[in-house]
Design a binder for these strands. Structure first.
Lengths: 115, 115
DNA sequence: TTACATATATAACACTGTTAGGTATAAGGT
DNA sequence: ACCTTATACCTAACAGTGTTATATATGTAA
């Protein structure tokens, strides 16, 4: 794999947890597959997270009380595991958004130097 | 370690290679230790990269002709290994900066939703 | 019946930052 | 003399995380 691709993957992967949390926030009660499609759509098809990336993250956040979850086996179709932000999750997301914006500024300081 | 700290570390680590390349670009011929201090200064002391992170990255980029390197043992003091961007490295940095700016926009699409 | 979309899960693997330790020179304080 | 700090580089072992590959299962369209 090329270096450009490698660095791009590193850049994206750092954002994954934040993307997932924000998606749950925007969608309300939602599930893994929908989150993947949501992010893909919002990024104009540019960011396609792997299911094997998303599902473990969701379970991790669930275990740590950032998300709550329940199975919905209503009617037909494959059962879905729904997730939603807990109060703790909402607080975390708020903090992470502040952290992200601060990091963006720091990155700008480093990356926009002309000398 | 807390989740907030974990996510923050993920966010930062994705930027490390780009920070290093941009630092070499800004400093001209430079060396690992100076890069670490440069990034620390530019980020107001907020980003302190570990030497064990920076040196392997520099050697990796050197091996892949993105950087060129030479030892300077002039006079007294500990010998320094200097690095500079190759033509290929300059091209890569330019591409990565475009990639980064594009990713920033994609991230904005996902993270700045109010609905 | 074939293929695709939907929907979740886990094991094995590769990659990468951290922790921890080692080596070495030089300056400043006690 | 001694100790600490700053400078300067390196590597091994560890932990964490995304990818690849695989498995399971339902519903729909060609």
């Amino acid at each position: 794999m090329g270096i450009r691709e490698k660095v791009n993957r590193e850049l994206r992967s750092g954002l994954y947890t934040l993307f997932i949390l924000k998606s749950v926030d925007a969608l309300g009660e939602t599930y893994g597959y929908e989150i993947i499609k949501y992010i893909e759509k919002k990024s104009n098809g540019k960011i396609k997270m792997k299911d094997a990336t998303v599902y473990p993250v969701l379970r991790y956040l669930d275990r740590h009380k950032i998300l709550r979850s329940f199975w919905a086996t209503t009617g037909s179709g494959v059962p879905r595991k729904y997730y939603a932000l807990t109060d703790e999750g909402k607080k975390l997301l708020k903090e992470l958004m502040e952290d992200y914006r601060e990091l963006e500024i720091l990155a700008k300081n480093i990356l926009e130097v002309k000398e």
